[in-house]
Design a protein around this nucleic acid. Structure first.
Length: 535
DNA sequence: AACGCGTACAACCGCGGGGGT
DNA sequence: TACCCCCGCGGTTGTACGCGT
């Protein structure tokens, strides 16, 4: 279709056929006899021939198509054409919101296993899903958005909780439990404990006065980054903030506006020798992560005096498979909704840094898959971070492009913000909204959210979050959000901290206005910016 | 209108697994 | 056990289209 010019191209041999010839195979008549096989777009006539062939002979034995039908296409091309376009019951058109959500969920569990994902999406092909995801990934990466919607991340995290005792990453195919009960939501006591402990922790993104410092940079660097605190460069700090390799702190090597990226880190409060939980959304939900390894949200510390925490971290790269962006650092790898259809016997201790591969069952590792499981898995499997940081960055990451890492880091932070605002997290929206000028609660798609952005502002501003993944009647997947503990907790927490909900409402309005102000700046909506909304 | 850019999508390519011999 | 063949999968490429400037 797109390659119209190929209609008139000189026929070329299918590579496979060429290989077959070389291998002595493909003896199917003319193929082996040197008949050139067409490449490029299929014509309707060819389609008709192929359809007719399949009708008569059924699927399979694709190399025989050319022989029996005279179609000058290699078997591989025929199979692809049939599978992706001619096969009955194919669903055409763009993905629905439900499908998008499911894809994200599946990808968070499976990684780039398109065919398996396609099995969960009737009428959709692996190629279609792959194209969608890749495009989406690119777009979101460019916009500095999280790869996964917050509920996916949360779900993963919840699954992670459940799976903690097992030491398993994912049940994978073993489960074949298509969907977990929707009401399997659990709130561990520790969640509430953490809530209490972290009252006053504010998820803030500081917008510098200096317009040259991107909001994301600030986000990533947090309050410990100049000019917001007097901390020394994180890289030179003593290891009182230990960043595990798996937590994917990224080094923005190119300097400008990149600085150090350590989207996840803990802050150890020196005065109390207590790990000050730096991030919130998932932390309170995961006992294991919350107190030790949780590195999700960047909060100011209690009483808002974040700069006193001397947060820092080391930058570490995390290698991921291509197109896998470690931009969501939260979530677990336990089987959650929907459960992984995979039966991936993941050696949780196998964290081979191989850039590719390792994805197939039997050898899969979340580390390699680039899924949320991988991310969280590493968090969990590595030693507790406290005083245990070892700089594995130079060992584990072979070739992670810096820009990817950066975008990933950005994404993680963006995700954090989305989550905050999405769910009125007691750590998030509530906190933000009490001091933050803007929140857009009208978003209906997690796919087009707040991008990274440079803008100037007052001394301290909160990063506006454009899009909020808001469960609503418009979103048939709202039911998924029953698993949002934040939602359940927000009210209570908010009441506890602020006494009334009005603050949030007001803050949302203010934030919305602020967002508009910001969006009027340099950001291009064409790149998936502030005001991109799903149709 | 022209251009540039981003996106969507079809198709190609290489690799590896599984089954048969 | 080794080899061959077929098939499927995932990564990548190339091009048309749409939109903004």
């Amino acid at each position: 279709m797109k390659r119209v010019k190929n209609e008139n191209e000189e026929d070329v041999l299918c590579n496979d056929q060429t290989q077959s010839r070389l291998n002595g195979e493909g003896n199917g008549g003319s193929v082996g006899g040197g008949v050139v096989l067409k490449k490029g777009p299929w014509t309707s006539a060819e389609d008709a021939i192929l359809i007719d062939y399949v009708r008569k002979h059924g699927e399979g034995n694709w190399n025989a198509v050319q022989k029996h039908s005279g179609l000058s296409r290699c078997g591989k091309s025929c199979r692809l054409r049939w599978a992706n376009h001619l096969r009955p019951n194919l669903k055409k058109g763009s993905f629905t919101a439900e499908e998008e959500q499911l894809i994200a969920q599946l990808h968070s569990e499976m990684g780039n296993r398109w065919a398996r994902m396609a099995a969960h999406l009737p009428g959709r092909t692996d190629n279609e899903i792959k194209n969608y995801w890749n495009t989406r990934t690119k777009r979101r990466s460019r916009a500095g958005l999280p790869l996964y919607p917050p509920d996916v991340s949360l779900r993963k995290m919840q699954g992670n909780q459940r799976g903690q005792g097992t030491g398993r990453i994912d049940d994978g195919d073993r489960g074949h439990h298509d969907f977990l009960p929707k009401n399997n939501y659990e709130i561990h006591d520790v969640i509430f404990d953490n809530l209490k402990e972290n009252q006053g922790i504010l998820p803030i993104a500081i917008v510098p006065e200096n317009p040259d410092i991107s909001a994301n940079s600030i986000l990533l660097n947090g309050l410990d980054s100049p000019p917001y605190c007097n901390s020394v460069p994180s890289s030179s700090l003593p290891n009182h903030h230990h960043l595990r390799e798996s937590t994917m702190s990224f080094l923005g090597s190119s300097g400008t506006n990149k600085n150090w990226f350590y989207p996840f880190y803990h802050v150890q409060d020196h005065s109390s020798d207590k790990i000050v939980q730096s991030f919130g959304l998932h932390s309170p939900l995961d006992p294991g992560l919350s107190s030790h390894n949780s590195m999700y949200y960047r909060h100011s510390l209690s009483n808002g005096n974040s700069s006193t925490s001397k947060p820092t971290s080391k930058a570490v790269k995390l290698e991921l498979p291509s197109l896998q962006y470690p931009d969501t650092g939260f979530g677990g790898w336990g089987a959650t909704f929907p459960p992984s259809p995979l039966n991936e016997s993941v050696d949780v201790f196998n964290q081979s840094p191989l850039p590719h591969g390792g994805l197939e069952s039997g050898s899969s590792s979340p580390h390699n898959s680039g899924t949320l499981e991988a991310i969280i898995y590493q968090k969990k499997t590595l030693p507790n971070s406290k005083n245990n940081y070892s700089d594995k960055s130079s060992h584990s990451s072979t070739a992670t492009p810096v820009d990817r890492a950066e975008s990933s880091a950005l994404n993680m932070n963006e995700t954090e913000w989305e989550d905050y605002n999405d769910h009125a997290s007691p750590f998030g929206a509530t906190s933000i909204l009490n001091e933050c000028p803007a929140v857009n609660s009208n978003a209906n798609s997690w796919d087009k959210l707040t991008p990274s952005q440079n803008f100037s502002g007052n001394n301290v501003k909160y990063e506006p979050v454009d899009q909020v993944y808001t469960p609503s009647s418009e979103n048939p997947l709202s039911m998924l959000n029953i698993t949002w503990p934040d939602v359940l907790l927000a009210s209570d927490w908010h009441e506890q901290c602020y006494g009334h909900e009005k603050n949030m409402t007001d803050a949302r309005d203010n934030l919305t206005d602020y967002k508009k102000h910001v969006a009027g700046g340099s950001y291009s909506s064409s790149t998936g910016g502030y005001f991109m909304h799903m149709a």
